[in-house]
């Protein structure tokens, strides 16, 4: 079943970081990815299994100095139930609403979803367009220290992140979006949830009249990791949304993605859907 020789459940971030420093630790949060991946051999459990569930510092959604901090252990259900998330971080809320099932949303954590680094990870695309930073804590020199890494730099590839083995993802920080800021997430699927994204589209921007500024576009499941789409962003930046601008942006997006063919869809279909759904998302913004 597993080669776990030690199970630990620290109660503070300091203790957790200390245990991580000792090495050979698998971090366990909600377990919804770790359990099946350890069963099917995709993840080799290390000798120490460390549940971080009791670490209080990793919980809660707070707002201070124009920033929102989301503790890594915040479950997807807690995000979905948060008024702040629903009203101010719409794209993230939409991703949480379309996330797996109620049972999984109740267990899965945002920190876990980020560290799992799936190309189709539901919260990653909204975090990209919301310019989130992840907070990494460690005790590499004996004292607890944190560093912040932009999410775009944190995600390296399927299951690959910039987290060092001694680090723990403690939270996500993002600037509270200004007024007239819109964000939107679209997940392609035939059912509301319990679906792995064939493709997903994220859009965020400050809206002035019919024009978008500070445009951020991201796509999921079309590359080894969720990606920002700078050419599409540039095509939209400062422009009033009309059919022509939308078509140019959609064409730009198509050039930025590298989808694969797998059991869920062909690369051709993924390309078509990125173009069509990005177009639809932009049209909805225009018509709103």
């Amino acid at each position: 079943m597993s080669g776990i020789s030690n199970y630990v459940a620290p109660r503070s971030l300091d203790e957790a970081a200390e245990l991580l420093r000792a090495g050979n630790v698998t971090l366990l949060a909600g377990g919804t990815d770790l359990m099946p991946q350890s069963r099917n051999g995709r993840t080799q459990l290390r000798p120490t299994l460390m549940s971080i569930r009791r670490v209080a510092e990793l919980r809660g959604i707070s707002e201070a100095a124009g920033n929102v901090r989301i503790g890594a252990l915040t479950t997807i259900s807690e995000l979905r139930d948060s008024v702040l998330v629903r009203e101010r971080l719409q794209a993230l809320w939409q991703a949480c609403d379309r996330f797996a099932s109620d049972q999984i949303r109740n267990a899965a954590t945002i920190g876990g979803n980020i560290c799992n680094a799936s190309p189709a990870g539901d919260t990653l695309v909204p975090l990209l367009v919301l310019d989130a930073q992840v907070e990494l804590a460690s005790k590499s020199n004996g004292t607890l220290a944190t560093r912040a890494v932009p999410i775009a730099d944190f995600l390296l590839g399927p299951g690959q992140t910039a987290r060092a083995a001694t680090e723990i993802l403690s939270g996500i920080v993002l600037a509270l979006p200004p007024r007239h800021f819109i964000s939107s997430f679209f997940k392609f699927g035939t059912r509301p949830a319990l679906d792995i994204s064939l493709i997903s589209v994220g859009l965020a921007a400050r809206r002035a009249g019919n024009a978008l500024h500070d445009v951020r576009v991201a796509f999921g499941a079309v590359a080894p990791r969720p990606i920002r789409a700078p050419a599409a962003e540039a095509a939209l930046e400062g422009k009033a949304l009309d059919d022509g601008v939308i078509a140019v942006a959609a064409a730009a997006a198509e050039a930025e993605i590298h989808p694969i063919s797998d059991v869920r869809a062909s690369d051709w279909y993924r390309r078509e859907m990125v173009r069509n759904m990005f177009t639809r998302v932009l049209a909805h913004v225009r018509d709103r």
Binding site: G31, M35, P36, Q103, A107
Partner: peptide, 12 residues
């Protein structure tokens, strides 16, 4: 809250 017990480590 409800969870899938197959995804939860018993130790947890």
């Amino acid at each position: 809250v409800t969870v899938n017990s197959c995804l939860m480590f018993a130790a947890d």
